[in-house]
Amino acid sequence: MKKALRIAAKTFLFFALSMLFAWIVPYYELVGSWLSAKVSLEFAISVSKIVLGEVYPEPLDVVYGLVCLVINTIITVMVYKLVMLVIRVIKQKIRE
């Protein structure tokens, strides 16, 4: 039971961090200008067709969403690892 609660708490922490960074980080400024300069419409259509299995009416939105999701995941994983390291250090200090 204790292990299940730990897993649930870690999952909630990861989800909360993900939502926090999705709300805080200005993805449009980071991704929007790069996306419009580097990604062609043909590439966006092919990516949306591969990911969704069909041609999406706004293929650039699909690519933008995927890039934002990857950036958010990378940021969240790094911060999550840092938070878990801090928690582990605090637990060790308390036990000593």
Score class of each variant (00 low, 15 high):
L60V: 12
V89D: 05
F15G: 02
F15A: 07
K38Q: 11
Y27F: 15
E54F: 15
Y27R: 01
S36H: 12
V62K: 09
V86Y: 04
V86E: 04
A44K: 10
P59N: 14
L85R: 10
M78I: 09
I75Y: 01
L5V: 04
K93R: 06
S18P: 03
L41D: 14
E29V: 05
S40N: 14
G65T: 15
L5G: 00
K3F: 07
P59Y: 10
V86Q: 03
V67F: 06
V77H: 02
L85S: 08
I94M: 13
P26A: 01
G53Q: 07
V31F: 04
V89S: 01
V70L: 15
L82A: 06
E42L: 14
K3S: 08
T11M: 09
I74M: 04
V39T: 12
A9R: 06
W23V: 06
R6N: 08
Y56R: 08
I90H: 02
P57E: 15
L17V: 00
I71A: 06
I71P: 01
S18N: 08
S33I: 11
E58R: 12
L5N: 01
E29H: 07
T73Y: 01
I87Y: 05
K81E: 07
K81I: 10
Y80K: 05
F43W: 14
E54L: 13
S18H: 03
S18D: 04
Q92E: 12
L60I: 10
V89C: 01
K49N: 14
S46R: 15
L82I: 10
K2T: 08
V62I: 15
V79R: 00
G32Q: 03
V62D: 10
L52Q: 09
R95Q: 12
V83D: 00
V77P: 00
P59M: 14
S40Q: 13
L52R: 06
